[in-house]
Simulated scan of single mutants.
Amino acid sequence: MDLTEQINQLEADLQELGSLLAKAERKRVQELLKEEQKKVEKEITAKRQQKEQQARRVADPTAATKAAYTVKITNYGWDQSDTFVKIYLTLKGVHTIPAENVGVEFKERSFSVLVKDLDGKNHQMTILNLLSPIDAGESCKKIKTDMLLIMCRKQTSKKWECLTQIEKQSKDKDKPAPNETADPSDGLMSMLKKIYSDGDDEMKRTINKAWSESQEKKLKGEDMMDL
């Protein structure tokens, strides 16, 4: 089925959804139909853009081979499951270009992305020194509406604290070094202050009494109170 036929079918679906919406009386049914209308309208827009691009390529067969300048993809989001590390790239219109224009190369510790001829530009991204090894053969890409999803399959199902080794080194460097000369009683004092601050009147009286007795013992040269 060519794009023209696909668009015609989607427009027919949209028209039928409109008829059903006009007859629907239940609010929930109306909301479901409206939501489906939005999805179909979005799909029609994407198919029309794809058709326009095809028409331009037919009109100018050399357009696809003309040099396009390359921009680096710098913004991305990521999350993970037990099996995959997922990288999300927002690329407006990526779903409208031929799938073969979207290339991703996976290696054990890296991956690179090259999206050709999207809005007159090539888009490139390379991530090196992944935190842990991935299975390049089982990793993949998924093209979604205005977004490219990169799925790196983990070799082991441990949780990643960050995406790359460089990020981990930077985090480790920023961690404060342990203060070996700190007074061991500081922790106890902090705890007592918090208990005092959060406690009721009875608790505050108890702490004040214990503190006063402790100070008296110190003045007499006795050991500090045993709380």
Rank of each mutant, 00 (worst) to 15 (best):
G221P: 00
M224W: 15
S185G: 11
A64M: 00
G187I: 00
L192M: 07
K86F: 04
D117L: 02
S197A: 15
D13I: 05
K92Y: 09
I166D: 13
S139Q: 10
N208H: 12
Q54Y: 08
V113Q: 07
F106A: 06
N8A: 14
K220T: 05
M189H: 09
R205E: 13
K171W: 12
K217W: 14
L21M: 06
W211P: 03
T4I: 15
L114N: 04
Y76L: 03
A182R: 08
A210R: 01
P98N: 01
A22R: 15
K220F: 07
V104A: 09
K171C: 09
K194E: 14
S190R: 08
C152Y: 03
E105T: 14
E35T: 14
E11H: 13
E41G: 09
E25N: 03
K72M: 06
D223L: 14
K220S: 03
D146Y: 00
Q124Y: 03
S139H: 04
Q80S: 05
P61D: 00
I127N: 03
Y76M: 00
Y69M: 15
S157M: 11
S110L: 02
Q37S: 02
E100Q: 06
L192S: 06
L17R: 00
T65P: 06
K42I: 13
K141A: 09
D60M: 10
T74C: 06
D198I: 12
E31F: 05
L128Q: 14
K66M: 03
L149Y: 01
N129M: 02
K27D: 11
I97M: 02
K159L: 12
D198Y: 03
R109A: 14
T4R: 15
A210D: 07
D79W: 13
K173Y: 04
L128N: 15
K209S: 11
K173S: 09
K86N: 11
M203L: 08
C162R: 07
I44H: 02
K66P: 00
R28L: 10
P184D: 01
D183M: 00
E52Y: 13
P178C: 07
Q37W: 07
